[in-house]
């Protein structure tokens, strides 16, 4: 009876594929060193959970979650438009911490650390997705659609402009392109997908609290994208499987239960470092940032 467990892992992987491929759109293709992606994920999760609790139909809440995250994406680019490189990374990291503190402390809206329990499973057009199997199909559909859309975007002339922004922003400006516009469009699309991934996550786990949307999650997302390779959709997908399945594989390692927790973490860190040393540009990386 391995299937329920695999289904669960595949659902998580599906959600993370959306997250990391969309992060790669901003980080890899556009060169926006965004460490605040997890904030969009959280905004999406909370928006969708709170809206459905308030009686809004799931599909509408799902879309609004994406749009709402997208608006924050726009604001973030607007606020940080003068920053580059490490400083942009720091500002976006700061942004994600600020969103986290709001989730944690704005108890009137988010219930703070108490979290939101009992988030309902999605239902639309008269059907409710209650079993994990049907949830997997739902996630898979959304995931494939999202990857397809992002794939089309990066292969389009717009996508090439994004890559040009990353490689030579000055040059593009000289050609009369408004790079700010390109950046915020890329960030808004990226945030939109993170937002719907948040909605998928919230309605799957059914209980969310702010602790899901903080540092360990940022590290996880960033590791996946970097290990997969900058500006490689294929890389991010493969890497999501690799990074999420390593800890699962470690569960089958016969470790004595007294040291199981830290020993797994040690091995995980070693594997991560090993992959980085073997493939410093990521599994399918073709470009470098900076």
């Amino acid at each position: 009876m391995i299937w329920p467990y695999l289904t669960h892992l595949l659902i998580l992987i599906g959600i993370y594929v959306i997250l990391t491929v969309s992060l790669n759109l901003a980080l890899g293709y556009t060169g926006l060193l965004n460490l605040g992606h997890v904030a969009f994920f959280g905004i999406g999760a909370y928006t969708s959970a709170l809206l459905t609790k308030a009686g809004v139909p799931f599909l509408l809440a799902f879309i609004i979650a994406g749009i709402f995250a997208s608006i924050f994406g726009y604001l973030l680019v607007l606020a940080t438009r003068k920053l580059k490189g490490d400083y942009l990374a720091l500002a976006t990291l700061g942004f994600s911490f600020v969103i986290y503190s709001l989730m944690l402390n704005w108890t009137g809206l988010t219930r703070g650390p108490l979290g939101i329990p009992g988030i309902e499973k999605p239902s639309f057009f008269g059907l409710t997705i209650s079993s994990t199997y049907s949830y997997l199909i739902f996630v898979a559909v959304i995931c494939i659609l999202s990857v397809f859309v992002i794939y089309r975007i990066v292969k389009s002339p717009f996508g090439r402009l994004l890559e040009a922004t990353r490689d030579d922003e000055m040059g593009l400006r000289v050609l009369g392109k408004n790079t700010f516009k390109l950046k915020y469009k890329a960030m808004m699309i990226s945030a939109f997908f993170a937002g719907i991934a948040g909605s998928l996550f919230a309605h799957y786990i059914t209980y969310i609290d702010p602790s899901y949307f903080t540092i360990p999650e940022i590290i996880l997302l960033l590791s996946i994208v970097i290990v997969g390779g900058i500006a490689s959709i294929k890389g991010s997908i493969v890497s999501t499987f690799v990074i999420l399945l390593i800890p699962e594989a470690l569960r089958f390692l016969a470790l004595s239960s007294s040291i199981l927790g830290p020993a797994r973490q040690v091995i995980y860190a070693m594997i991560l470092l090993g992959i980085l040393l073997l493939r410093p540009r990521g599994i399918f990386g073709r470009v470098d940032l900076e």
Binding site: M1, W3, Y5, I208, S211, Y212, R251, L260
Partner: peptide, 26 residues
């Protein structure tokens, strides 16, 4: 037989751990 899983006190980890315990370890 006791099967031990680490959940790090995190929701997502706990969901994965319980899924593994139930479906895989039975």
């Amino acid at each position: 037989e006791l099967v031990v899983e680490d959940s790090k006190c995190e929701g997502k980890e706990a969901v994965t751990a319980i899924n593994k315990l139930i479906s895989l370890d039975g």
